[in-house]
Each structure stands twice: as C-alpha cells, then as structure tokens.
C-alpha cells in the first residue's frame, strides 16, 4: 500500500508535525513500508484470537480513593513560558 502525499499531510497535521517539502517523498516511502508490513500480517487468520489490549498478562490494580498528592503550583509552573494569576498562558485559542 502506498501512502499518497495528501494522506501524509493529513497525518502530519493531526500530529502537529511540520513536513519539509523535500522530506515528503522519504516519509511517504517509510510509512508505506510499515503499512505493507501490516498488510502482510492481515493475511494471518486471527478469528480464534482474542484482541490484545496489553502485552502484559496482568490486570489493572486499583487505587484507594484518597488525596495523596500535594501540589506546589509555583514549582510546577517554573518551566512554563508564561503564567498569570496562577494560570498557564498560551497563544489565544479562538473557538
């Protein structure tokens, strides 16, 4: 299966990645190779196989519902480019 340039741009947009125009061809080829591999795997009959959600043969442990974390917002916000009144500031998001 070959990935078309249009699809590549769409996937890059969803992942918020910038594609250099000269890299498009290589990416398309590399991703197409992966899809080919998936296609090859599709040939295996998996009717009797339960889908695997996780490679570990274990189940989720649960936590008691208690407040155990203390939060120091100043420390956590030290790495943020901009804050004000306790809020993180980001470029305006227009809805």
């Amino acid at each position: 299966m070959t990935l078309e340039a249009e699809e590549l741009h769409k996937v890059a947009h969803l992942a918020r990645l910038t594609l250099e125009p000269e890299a498009v061809k290589d990416y398309a080829q590399a991703l197409s190779n992966i899809l080919d591999l998936v296609d090859e795997m599709q040939a295996i009959d998996t009717d009797q196989v339960q889908p695997m959600a996780h490679p570990l043969d274990a189940t989720q442990r649960l936590r008691i519902d208690e407040v155990t974390e203390t939060v120091d917002p100043e420390y956590l916000q030290a790495g943020a480019p901009a804050t004000e009144k306790g809020l993180y500031l980001v470029p305006r998001v227009v809805e």
């Binding site: 407040v67 009144k85 306790g86």
Partner: peptide
C-alpha cells in the same frame, strides 16, 4: 470521588487555579 481518576490529587470544586 475525593481524588482524580488516575492520580491522588484532590477534585474539590472552586480551588485556586492549578493548585
């Protein structure tokens, strides 16, 4: 609940931002 779904931080409504 008292705490978050995946962490032990409080869920109380109306706290100061990001605390």
């Amino acid at each position: 609940t008292e705490s978050k779904i995946f962490s032990g931080a409080s869920t109380r409504f109306g706290a100061e931002p990001n605390t």
